[in-house]
Amino acid sequence: MKKSIVAIAIAISLFSCNKAEEKTTSEKTAYIDTVKLMDEYTESKDLQAKFEEKSKVMGRELELEIKKFQEEADNFRRNAQANGPEWAQKKGAELQKKEQQLTYAQQAMSQQLQKEAAVERDSVVSKVRKYIKDYGKKNGYSYIYGTGDAATVLYAKDGYDITEKIVKELNDNYKTPEKTETKDTAKAEEKK
């Protein structure tokens, strides 16, 4: 009797192990190259282009101020000896203060652009993550791994790479925003 109970227990445990093995081998997995995904995703490209343009526009305004400052500095150098040391010291202090203000303005502009870009980039990343999660559920995946800068997959067969599918579907679902901001910027530039 004891032998038959032990035999049944062993049979049940072997049967359970086989079931667990079957379950893990039938799980559907894939991976996505996250760097490639963000490089090829149209919304991500649009976001990058938007901030490059915004940086150029803001940079032009600052460049005008820098040119004015350089002209003042050149004028100062030419007139320093003629106007005497007292004038040169006073004017030099003013120029130094302006240079500091320009440096602060440049840093502030850079920080503002970085903050705005980070907020919008985070929004795109969240949207992509949600899409991948929904894609995984809809298509029966147990796991979808990410590779790229923060690689979590050290090796995978090429057949498991679904990056192209995800990029295509994201791009198909993305509606390109109207370029009104760019048009408005161009019109403002023409008026200057």
Rank of each mutant, 00 (worst) to 15 (best):
M1W: 04
S4P: 01
V6T: 12
I8N: 02
A9D: 04
A9W: 06
I12C: 03
S13C: 08
F15R: 00
S16K: 00
A20T: 05
E21D: 08
E22R: 00
T24W: 05
S26E: 01
S26I: 02
E27W: 01
K28T: 06
D33V: 00
D33E: 02
T34F: 14
T34M: 14
D39P: 04
S44F: 10
D46C: 01
Q48F: 06
K50A: 11
E52T: 10
K54W: 01
K54H: 01
V57H: 06
M58I: 05
L62K: 11
L64D: 08
K67W: 08
K67M: 14
K68V: 06
K68P: 00
F69R: 09
E71D: 13
E72K: 15
D74M: 13
N75Q: 12
F76T: 10
R77Y: 11
R77E: 15
A80F: 03
G84T: 07
G84V: 06
Q89V: 03
Q89Y: 03
Q89L: 09
A93N: 10
E94K: 12
E99H: 12
T103I: 13
A117Q: 15
E120K: 15
R121N: 13
R121T: 14
V124A: 08
V124C: 05
V124K: 12
V128F: 03
K130H: 05
Y131N: 04
K133M: 10
K133C: 00
D134P: 02
D134N: 10
K137C: 00
K137E: 12
G146S: 10
G148L: 07
G148D: 06
G148H: 07
D149K: 13
A151H: 03
V153R: 02
Y155E: 11
Y155M: 09
G159Q: 04
Y160N: 08
D161G: 02
I162E: 02
K165Y: 00
K165F: 04
I166M: 09
V167I: 14
E181K: 12
K183D: 14
K183C: 00
A188F: 02
A188W: 03
E189V: 15
E190H: 09
K192Q: 12
